[in-house]
Design a protein around this nucleic acid. Structure first.
Length: 416
DNA sequence: CGTCCACAGGAATGACGGGCGG
DNA sequence: CCGCCCGTCATTCCTGTGGACG
């Protein structure tokens, strides 16, 4: 078989080159450090807010706002884990449950997850939401605890499912005799209140905390702390550290982003056999991360979404101008015909286009062409070559890349 | 100034695979 | 095994609309 020397080389290089990583885990964003620099105030305030539970009282419901990577989740977990150990010390019957609403996905699973943390077993599916809620309530009351529910990324749940779950939760205390519930809501979206029933909102944010984005120097400190744990001494160059924090600061002060950059930069450096992480490696890392995200997104699309993208691909190439929904539908129709695939409605196509827009693969904006109607102008947001690269490996799709839609030639009645 | 195009995008309603309790 | 409910994807039907044209 083949040529073992090649692999030998790779392994050899890996083992021999200076090791950079002491502990890679530290740079993951779900790692909870012992210190959260620049969040001392928030920790203190949140700590004060939840402290009453140690004296058997319910604490206020609290809402944490802030963009991604501003430390909301970290602060909440940090405070609660300390609270938990304090509670043990005092023998206070406190329990908490952390749920990430976006990951969890639905009301049903949120309640299932809450119930499980109480030791109740809830089937994956099969029950009505009401039934799960009842079981949760009963189980909770029986457990005689003060229960703190952390609902992270709550905006994701509310935006497409409404505030029913929160309404139920805010009222649950009325039905409890031996237990109490407090809610800590975490939202990335500052406009969340607009989506909420005002009654729910006011009961939910008895207290509010806003997390400002980190600035470059704060990010720098955070990275410095973590890099001490994750890399061996002297492996990280000053300029690399600075550029990491600057890049992440430019992107709404996202610490998560900064940590990702640093970790990937480390991996790049390691692969290059460099004993030092340099500015260059960080820049490579930036491209790398972006590229990977897009490729992953492209690969995971459904066939129809891919065909929509390809339709835009063809239209943009042919006319040089932006495509409209109608044109896309025509070309998409043709591609489906070529592949012998049943086609979706135009209505459905509209939502697919919006989804692709949100993912940043397309750019669409509504424009009115007056007498000639109202539509969306759609443009590809990613390079054509990337589409060719990713879709080219699929036999059917690569045929559709080469295919020249007939409609393009006769469909040249473009005004203005 | 009203008309009317070419859609946008909300609401209601299936169809369907998965999974439950009984 | 049946009847039921879940969540997801899709269709059907629908009302809404910015602005160039006449």
């Amino acid at each position: 078989m083949g040529n073992p020397n090649i692999l030998d080389d790779v392994f050899e290089k890996f083992v021999n080159c200076a090791k950079l990583f002491k502990d890679r885990e530290v740079l993951r964003h779900d790692y909870l450090p012992e210190k959260l620099p620049h969040r001392e105030d928030q920790i203190r305030v949140l700590g004060q807010a939840v402290a009453p539970v140690l004296k058997d009282a319910r604490c206020s419901n609290i809402f944490l706002y802030g963009k991604t990577g501003t430390g909301k989740t970290a602060v909440a977990k940090f405070v609660l884990s300390h609270l938990e150990s304090k509670a043990k010390e005092y023998g206070a019957p406190v329990k908490f449950c952390y749920v990430n609403c976006r990951m969890t996905g639905s009301e049903y699973r949120v309640f299932a997850s809450l119930s499980q943390s109480l030791g109740l077993s809830i089937p994956f599916t099969g029950l009505s939401v009401g039934e799960v809620f009842d079981r949760f309530r009963n189980g909770l009351d029986a457990s005689r605890t003060i229960f703190i529910v952390v609902l992270d990324e709550i905006d994701a749940l509310i935006k497409d499912r409404g505030d029913g779950i929160l309404y139920e939760l805010t009222r649950i205390n009325e039905a409890l005799h031996k237990s109490k519930v407090s809610i800590i809501g975490i939202s990335n979206d500052l406009r969340l209140k607009e989506f909420l029933d005002p009654r729910v909102f006011s009961s939910l944010s008895e207290e509010e905390m806003v997390f400002r984005p980190y600035d470059a120097s704060e990010l720098r400190n955070i990275l410095l702390e973590r890099s001490k744990l994750s890399f061996y001494d002297g492996c990280l160059s000053e300029p690399a550290l600075s550029i990491c924090s600057a890049l992440a600061a430019a992107e709404h002060g996202d610490a998560r982003r900064a940590l990702d950059l640093l970790r990937v930069a480390g991996e790049v450096a390691e692969r290059n056999g460099s004993p030092l992480i340099t500015e260059e490696h960080v820049r490579d890392a930036e491209k790398h991360i972006e590229h990977n995200k897009v490729v992953e997104a492209l690969k995971n699309l459904t066939l129809h979404s891919k065909l929509v993208l390809l339709s835009v691909y063809h239209l943009n190439k042919a006319s040089g101008t932006n495509a409209t929904t109608g044109e896309i539908y025509d070309v998409y129709n043709e591609l489906c015909g070529e592949l012998g695939v049943s086609l979706l409605t135009q209505r459905r196509l509209g939502t697919l286009i919006n989804e692709l827009d949100v993912m940043g693969l397309l750019n669409s904006k509504v424009v009115s062409m007056g007498r000639y109607g109202r539509t969306k102008k759609i443009r590809l947001e990613i390079s054509r070559t990337l589409i060719q690269d990713v879709f080219g490996s699929d036999e059917r799709l690569s045929r559709m890349i080469k295919y020249e839609p007939k409609l393009l030639s006769k469909n040249t009645h473009n005004r203005h």
